[in-house]
Every structure is written in structure tokens, then in C-alpha cells.
């Protein structure tokens, strides 16, 4: 019973990743693609959690933290890039306003 429920949720999550992949490939603007990538990262993270408890190991739980941090940093960097054209501002010359 439990195993079936966990496998069903794994299948649902992979379907959700497929849907987000559609938005990533099609999305008219870059911001759409960034939102889709963010969603894919978060879904991947939860999929790894479910996979970890399905296989009965807790070795995968490190990956959750790493993917969470990488997704956030990636989204932030891309958003700043499309907003200003730079990822990190130098801040002293005032040309990037």
C-alpha cells in the first residue's frame, strides 16, 4: 500500500516535470523559462526526497540541500541578468542604473 502510494507520487512528479519542461522549451519570454527552470529544480528536489524514502536510504538527503541552493542561486542570477544586464554590480561607478 505504502509503496504503491509512493510510486504513484513519483509518477505524478515526473509528469509535472514534463509539463514544466514544455513551458521551458516553449515559453515566449526568458522570464517564463526561468520560472520553469525554478519549478523543475524544486520538483526534482521533492522527487529525490520521495526516491530516498522509497529505496530506504538516507544518503540522498544531502542532494536535496544542494539542489535547493543551486536552484535559488541560478534563478537569482538569471533574473538579475535579464533585469540589468549584469549579474554582479561593481557599485562604485554608477553606470548600471
Amino acid at each position: 500500500m505504502t509503496t504503491t502510494l509512493l510510486w504513484v507520487s513519483l509518477i505524478l512528479l515526473s509528469l509535472a516535470i514534463l509539463g514544466a519542461l514544455y513551458r521551458l522549451l516553449k515559453g515566449p519570454s526568458i522570464a517564463d523559462r526561468i520560472a520553469a527552470l525554478d519549478t523543475i529544480g524544486i520538483l526534482l528536489l521533492s522527487m529525490i526526497a520521495v526516491l530516498g524514502i522509497t529505496t530506504g536510504t538516507r544518503a540522498y538527503f544531502d542532494i536535496i540541500l544542494v539542489i535547493g541552493i543551486l536552484t535559488f542561486i541560478g534563478t537569482t542570477a538569471m533574473a538579475r541578468y535579464i533585469e540589468r544586464g549584469v549579474v554582479l554590480e561593481s557599485g562604485d561607478d554608477g553606470t548600471n542604473h
Binding site: A31, I34, D38, T71, F72, T76, M78, A79, E83
Partner: peptide, 8 residues
Amino acid sequence: AGHLNARA
């Protein structure tokens, strides 16, 4: 991240 993306 969602807020940053929408603002950008």
C-alpha cells in the same frame, strides 16, 4: 526567487 523573477 519568484518575486525577483516577476520584477525582472
